[in-house]
Simulated scan of single mutants.
Amino acid sequence: MIHYPFLQEGATIGIPAPSSGVEAELHGLLRQAINRMESRGFRTIVGDTVWTQEKAKSAPARIRAQELNAMLQNEAIDLIVPPWGGELLIEILEHIEFDQVSPKWILGYSDTSVLLLALTLVRGIATAHGTNLIDLRGEQTDPTTSRWQTVLSTSRGGSVAQQSSESYQKEWQHDNPTPWIYHLTEPTEWKSVTGAPAQMKGRLLGGCIDVIRHLIGTPYGDVTSFQQQYIGNEPILWYFENCELSTTDLRRSLVQMKLAGWFANCSGILFGRSAANHAIENYEAEDVYQDLTRELGVPIVYDMDCGHVPPQMTLINGAYAEVDVKDGKGMVVQTFR
């Protein structure tokens, strides 16, 4: 059975940097994000690691793990939100005391998704793939991103619906700030590989494919045991987003997942929008999706609201989801059962 944390009003947010911290010249953005959360009624406990960054990490692995363990075990902390992702979160997994975690929400994406997926697979604790703390610093929040709080405040047994965004951000414009942080200028269109409407149901699992693929073959990536122990062998509805992979590297990663058994009981796959997916010898992302559809025989939807091309939905690892895609629009209903 999946354990679902619950976010109450006035909750306390722990802010560690289990992957990358924030460089000194960007500390203003972090302070702005912290102040914004406090102005919205949250309390914050800020770790030391968020203020440092050297050699592609906030601190040595043991120090990052020690700080994260303290927050995971602190019952006064209701939600953990790192400032953003990074590169080397995987270094701390062997130092995390999974058996001593006090269940609470963890929210983030990019490299943070390594921690999210590992915690759900190992402990059966639901985790939240969604916005980073830095992107919540705006005066206002767009309708898609803002749903994070509603999703995390859903009670066990309850359901929460999210609709596809109206538009998405093509590129960052840091020299042109907006009250919403993002510049949502391009019309959103969710697409199915077949071009026909798509429906799928299953237990959500996923994250940034660049990094979660490295859980394969480790004690933190045992999908089969998770299915047997926590979800009664229900099918898995996978979601992935690609940060930097070329199409052939994406293809290799998906084949590895298939060979490792991750897709053995799969009801469908959702792919987020990506600014990567660089074609190799005319091998496009759509070709990757078509190849996977032929091999797995499940519906595949792409360009959904997930990942490094904002905005993104809040997707809960472990939750039961029903997805309906038609005429370029999508609906995701998650039930905390």
Rank of each mutant, 00 (worst) to 15 (best):
S225H: 06
W262C: 01
E97S: 08
D99Y: 11
W180I: 07
S153Y: 01
K55E: 15
G272Y: 04
S146Y: 04
E139M: 11
Q140R: 08
W148G: 03
I300G: 05
G261V: 08
R137P: 10
I134D: 10
I269G: 00
T154D: 04
H308P: 06
L315G: 00
P83I: 03
C243W: 12
E166I: 09
N35A: 11
D324A: 14
I15K: 07
S58V: 01
H214T: 03
L292A: 13
I236W: 07
H308L: 15
K258H: 14
A276C: 08
T150F: 08
A24H: 14
F98L: 03
D291L: 05
Y289Q: 12
H214P: 06
A319L: 06
A285N: 03
T44Y: 03
G21K: 01
R337F: 15
L89G: 05
A59R: 04
R147M: 15
T44A: 04
C208Y: 13
L7K: 06
Q173E: 13
K55A: 15
G207R: 10
F6Q: 07
D303H: 05
A128T: 06
G195R: 02
G130Y: 11
Q53V: 05
E284S: 13
E284Y: 12
H27K: 14
G85M: 00
L215T: 00
L115M: 02
I212W: 03
Q32E: 12
E75G: 14
G297S: 03
N317M: 10
D99V: 10
I236H: 02
L88K: 13
D210H: 00
R213S: 03
L296C: 02
G158P: 11
T144S: 02
P299D: 04
R64Q: 05
H27L: 13
S167N: 03
L116C: 03
T127S: 13
N282C: 11
F271M: 05
L93C: 10
E281V: 14
T188M: 01
P103H: 00
P16R: 03
A76R: 11
G158F: 02
E234Q: 11
N242T: 05
N277I: 15
K104G: 02
D175K: 09
A17S: 06
E97Q: 04
Q229D: 07
A321V: 00
E87Y: 11
L115W: 06
A56W: 15
G202T: 05
G318H: 08
R337Y: 15
V81M: 05
C208E: 12
I280W: 11
C306P: 04
E166H: 13
L204R: 06
Q162D: 11
P60F: 01
E91R: 04
R251W: 11
L133P: 01
G330L: 01
T120R: 01
